[in-house]
Design a protein around this nucleic acid. Structure first.
Lengths: 154, 154
DNA sequence: TACCAGTCGTTGGCGCGGCCAACACCCGTG
DNA sequence: CACGGGTGTTGGCCGCGCCAACGACTGGTA
């Protein structure tokens, strides 16, 4: 199963490689969980459902901006969610083109299931670490991401 | 530039999300570096060149196993490397179907350039961390990956 | 009022990394 | 000889992340 744990020495110890492998493991666990308990939904669906529950009904463009998902992908994924009745699309009165997307009760229910799946994956992903190490790990990643695109201090 | 730093609260603090964002940043830096100084090569090319230099001439199937890259992708990427004269393919005498792939002098030269690019990316990726924190971070990731697919101890 | 800039949803496409299936070919073994 | 297995190749699929372009629509300004 561990497809590409193998690599040349100059590759396999570099942080970028470790990040890549860790992402592979993380996304693999998520994919497994979603497949098993998510009814074939993927991370895009989860992100959009979560955004709708957190911020309430919104237009597709707003959803895209809120989640960082491209407008075109939002359209496609919402269509899938809509066909499963997890989401509703209705025209914005007073603004012809815009849609108002709402999460349905079934959607909120599905979101809770996905939340449980995602929580379980966190646990499985971090299981080799102690609680203190997990906090360290999260703190280090947060620091990398926060200061990563740091302004030129000028 | 930071496309999807945005996310619902229930998403954006989870380790799997941080890993995903960190991977996005890491692979973005690598793509930028390869585009700028790698002549349009990508990570597959780098992995294969590195494997060839580390383990010497090998068949395509062996390269695939050594790097975790699928045989079909190895074929395609080697063709690109061959057309740039970074790699040579020759028939294995005494084994009709098998090829023996060799890195050329130009390939070794290109590999050194890519090494420099990749080293630079490590530095940029980890720049927010102190040396001690970098060691911690690498150690934590290694632990996650080593024990991640741990056998059931039974 | 007429025009222009900008937004919105949608379609269609691309790239990368990672896969799988099928095929023709070749090998070693029984 | 027949067979199983490795080998290289072609072609396709998926998920995630993008981009371009279009018609429909809006708001602001001349």
């Amino acid at each position: 199963m561990p497809a590409s744990s193998r690599a040349p020495a100059r590759v396999k110890d570099r942080p970028t490689w470790l990040v890549s492998r860790l992402f592979a493991r993380s996304s693999g666990l998520l994919a497994d969980g979603f497949e098993a308990h998510g009814g074939g939904l993927r991370s895009y669906h989860y992100r959009l459902l979560a955004a709708l529950e957190e911020w309430g009904p919104a237009s597709q463009a707003d959803l895209g901006r809120a989640t960082g998902i491209d407008r075109s992908d939002v359209t496609a994924v919402l269509s899938e969610l809509e066909s499963r009745r997890l989401v509703g699309r209705s025209a914005d009165p007073g603004h012809g083109r815009r849609n108002i997307v709402t999460i349905t009760a079934a959607g909120a229910e599905q979101l809770r299931e996905l939340d449980a799946v995602v929580d379980g994956v966190q646990e499985r992903l971090l299981s080799p670490l102690t609680a203190a190490q997990r906090r360290q790990f999260v703190a280090l990643m947060s620091k990398l991401l926060a200061d990563g695109s740091a302004p030129p201090t000028g």
